[in-house]
Simulated scan of single mutants.
Amino acid sequence: MTERTLPEAEYDAITDAAAHWCMRLHADDCTDAERLAFKQWHDADPLHAFEYAAMLEIWGVAEHLPRVEPMAIPATQRPRSRAGSMAIAATVLALGLPLAAFTGWNMGWLPNAYQRFEAGTSVRHITLDDGSQVELNLASELVFANYKDERRVTMKKGEAFFDVRHDSRHPFVVRAGQGQVRVTGTRFNVWMYQDQVRVTLVEGSVWVTSHRASKAGGQQLSPGMQASYRAGDFQPKVRDVALDDSSLAWRSGKLVLDNLALSDALPLINRYLDRPVMLADNATGTLRIGGNYNLNEVKNLVPSLPKVLPVYLTQNSDGNLVLNAIARPTRN
């Protein structure tokens, strides 16, 4: 955006308008007429678009906030359709960031640091605001927010290896899928694809829950253990793994498939594809595959599968490639 100077009052008016539209467009009762009016306002001036994008960043912070208990907001002041993080977001936008940040930090509502990281076609090494180190795998994304009572990472997609700075008074929590990992200082890996999550512990101790809204359940891991869960699991499934397990091979730029059934291998492969490959049936999923592959060449793996497995490729109505097992001839 080309920089230009406006009177302070005009800047304030644009900021107020951006805050108004941010709240209205997130409201359940927003009308089509309002959405059209917003588009006209948004497109009328590049500065409008710039200020609205900034407001969305603030709103994005609020979406990661803990929900306010209903009694914290008097019934006469409670929003008709939403409470919790939405009410806090409205407070942030209405009061202005500096005042809201001061109050929100002390109440444990708002972080004093907020960072978003993405990795594209190469592994990315990042340092979080608390000093923890993270390796971010290809096509991965996470958000870090530092709250008064905890350090919180939200995995948006992909995979990351964490080397967490120890702080027993300030726990480190990674939210992935419907569960979470809670630590004070340790080294571990989190892999996520759709609703599947795997946590591999290298050093220290972590507590893994498969449904963060539940007070019960969860598993404590020791080094050399891996927990996995998916949506709907009450308890994570735990198994022992070697610390040089294939799940950590991505840190060396490799995808290692150790004689896996296709049903287990495809989620690992699909993580790196623009469109997931599907299985035609359960029988195809029982075929096994092995080998070491460069991460940047995984897209070439699927077309080559008919050369190493008794399968052929078709395409479904959605445009996804489908693996089909070649039927074995029956004996008379």
Rank of each mutant, 00 (worst) to 15 (best):
G104D: 04
L93Y: 01
G84S: 10
L99T: 12
T103C: 12
W109H: 04
P98L: 06
L97N: 00
S81K: 15
L93D: 00
M86W: 14
A89E: 02
P74H: 03
A100R: 05
A94R: 14
L97R: 07
I88T: 13
V92Y: 11
G84N: 11
A94K: 15
T76I: 09
A100E: 03
S85L: 12
F102C: 11
A100Y: 01
L93F: 01
P111T: 01
L93E: 04
G96Q: 02
L99Y: 09
L99A: 15
A90N: 12
V92G: 03
P74I: 01
P79I: 05
T103W: 11
G96H: 03
S81W: 15
N112E: 05
W105H: 03
N112L: 02
G108Y: 00
A89L: 05
A75L: 08
A83F: 09
S81A: 15
L110A: 04
P98F: 07
G104P: 05
L93K: 07
L97Y: 10
R82T: 11
T91C: 05
I88S: 08
S81M: 15
A94Q: 07
T91D: 04
A83G: 15
F102M: 13
W109I: 14
F102K: 15
T91H: 08
L99S: 12
P79S: 06
A101S: 14
P98M: 06
P74E: 03
A90P: 01
P79M: 05
W105N: 04
A75R: 07
M107F: 05
A94G: 09
A75K: 09
W105D: 02
F102N: 10
S85V: 07
G84D: 13
R78I: 05
T76F: 10
G108L: 04
M107K: 10
N112M: 01
I88W: 11
A94Y: 01
S85H: 14
S81I: 11
G108R: 01
A75N: 03
N112H: 13
M86I: 15
M107V: 03
M86D: 14
T91V: 04
R80H: 08
W105F: 05
A87S: 12
S85G: 11
P74M: 02
W105M: 00
V92T: 00
G96V: 07
A87Y: 09
A83H: 14
P98Q: 11
I88K: 08
A83Y: 14
A94S: 11
A100I: 08
R78H: 10
P79K: 05
T103R: 12
R82Y: 14
N112V: 00
S85E: 10
L99P: 03
S85Y: 15
T103I: 13
P74L: 07
W109Q: 10
I88M: 14
V92C: 12
A90H: 09
G96Y: 01
G96R: 01
L97D: 08
L95V: 02
T76D: 07
N106W: 07
A90I: 06
P111K: 05
N112R: 08
